[in-house]
Amino acid sequence: MNRPSLLAIAILAAIALPLGLTDFWTFIAIEVLVFALYAVSFNLLLGYGGMLSFGHAAFFGVGGYTVAILVKHGGLPLAVAFPAALAMSAITAAIIGFFSVRRIGIYFAMLTFAFQMLLYTVALKATGLTGGDDGITGLKAAGALSKPIYYYWFALIIVIVALALMHRIVHSPFGMTLQALRGNPRRVEYVGINVRTHQLATFVLAGTIAGLAGAIFAISSGNVFPGWLNWTASATPIVMAVLGGFRTFIGPMVGAAVYVMLEVVISGHTEYWPLIMGVIIVVLVLMMPEGIMGMTRRIRDGKR
């Protein structure tokens, strides 16, 4: 089957999916969408730009908190809160990126990590705005979107548009430049391209999309917590991308789906679920060093 028809089938299946699901599973499906988007945005940095960020949760958190604060304290509709979340996460990413992208490797990772912990502290301490430890709870969309199935479709449209945009970008001249500078930034400079501005633009794009994911999730889960900004939250997209395969566009989406499903299934059975998940993920990554998509690609090419 060719790619366009596979894509059409996947989209139709995604649209039809919640018709056969309970509300509980519809929320899980939304979570998969959110984390698929989050993981792909992260992979713009890791897989395409070769920048390992340890602070990507900062943007997810800023997006989520922006929506939560505007909806809860401001009583504003999503039509205002979502664009505001995009703007806030973009501005945050521009500031953090300005200081971080000039550093390479572990220094970049440490800086992004430090900025994220800074925001975590703000979320904990600015209790008047953020609710401190308790976070902000009881979030709800008004009107039709308060029904899970409608909110799912709403999220699906946003996620598809954002994924299409990122797919476009990674295959464009900009995206090719990004993949070139991943391996050899100096050579990119010497063909007349300013590496830093391209890295910064990628960082801002990735942060903005992560903020969008956080915004969607704030409403579907009904809460935001400071834990969203904790360092463990930044490990999540790394694990998803590596698990699914960070050398492919859809790998991180697959990784996100597997991760969320594993979490749901295992946490329903035992309180030791993080331990079991950790073991399963370690085994999967050891078995498939190029991730799930790297593995399936190899099997497909081998059969030909």
């Binding site: 476009r168 970008i169 295959h171 464009s172 001249p173 900009f174 995206g175 090719m176 430049t177 990119v188 063909v191 007349g192 391209i193 391209h198 633009a201």
Partner: peptide, 16 residues
């Protein structure tokens, strides 16, 4: 060539 043509910012067309 993208560098030469100052097209590294364009997100159109397909680079390939």
């Amino acid at each position: 060539l993208t560098g030469r043509e100052r097209r590294s910012w364009s997100i159109w067309p397909k680079a390939r």
